[in-house]
Computed example of a mutant assay.
Amino acid sequence: MLKDFRAFIARGNVLDLAVAVIIGAAFGKIVTSLTDDIIMPIIGKVTGGLDFSSHFVRLGPIPADFKGSLTSYADLKKAGVPLIGYGQFVTQLMDFLIVAFVIFLMVRAVSKATAALEREKAEATAAPAADTAEVILLREIRDELKARSA
């Protein structure tokens, strides 16, 4: 069983997948930062200071010993107050849409590059162009000269 597991791990697809997961995790952090630190503040500015991360609906009571802000999603969540954080959901939705769009652009670019490569291969393996009239004439002259000298 250990031998089979080692063979499974050594296969190229598994290693490629591991690399993709690691790069994807790092890419996810970049996209989260892009969303949280750049896009959402711009959206907030355009919408008049709207900050999606602080939008929530409180579903339960606040503990008596709560000392945080009543408008802070993070403080209330840390205190164990049941909340529906729809602002956080909007932020995560933006993260997803950005990741999906970037992956779409990457796949599209790779598809175009692959199609261009296939076209180049097809053109390279295509039949040679037809001979020009000059080449045909020169061949006829050559053949005539060979026939006369023989």
Rank of each mutant, 00 (worst) to 15 (best):
Y73K: 03
K121A: 13
A79W: 01
L83E: 01
S111Y: 09
S111L: 10
A130F: 01
D75S: 02
A100I: 14
V81G: 01
A124T: 15
K112V: 14
T91I: 07
V99D: 04
A100W: 04
L70V: 06
I98K: 00
V81I: 06
T114L: 09
D65R: 05
F101C: 12
E118W: 14
L105S: 14
L93R: 08
L105R: 13
I98A: 08
V102R: 03
G60F: 05
F101I: 14
S111T: 12
D75E: 03
F89I: 10
I84M: 05
A115R: 10
L105C: 13
K112Y: 14
K112R: 15
R58W: 08
E120F: 04
Q88I: 03
L76I: 03
P82Y: 07
Y73F: 15
Q88E: 07
A122P: 00
I98Y: 06
F104P: 02
V81T: 09
K112A: 15
A122I: 06
V110F: 14
H55F: 09
M94Q: 06
P63Y: 05
M106D: 06
L76T: 01
K78D: 13
S53M: 04
D131N: 07
I84Y: 07
E120S: 09
L93K: 03
L105H: 12
G87S: 12
V90G: 11
A124I: 07
R119H: 09
M106W: 13
A126E: 05
D131Q: 11
P63K: 12
K78L: 10
L70T: 05
A113H: 13
Y73V: 12
S69A: 11
A129Y: 05
S53Y: 06
M106F: 14
V110R: 08
V99N: 09
E120R: 10
R119D: 11
M106H: 08
R108H: 11
P63W: 02
V99G: 09
T114V: 15
P128N: 10
M94E: 05
A79T: 03
D65V: 04
F96T: 14
T125R: 10
L117K: 14
R108L: 09
G85L: 02
S54V: 07
H55D: 08
A74Q: 06
G68L: 06
E120P: 01
R58Y: 08
V99F: 13
E118H: 04
S72R: 00
S111M: 10
M94N: 03
A126M: 05
P63C: 08
Y86V: 02
M94G: 02
L59N: 07
P82N: 06
P61Q: 10
A127I: 11
A133K: 09
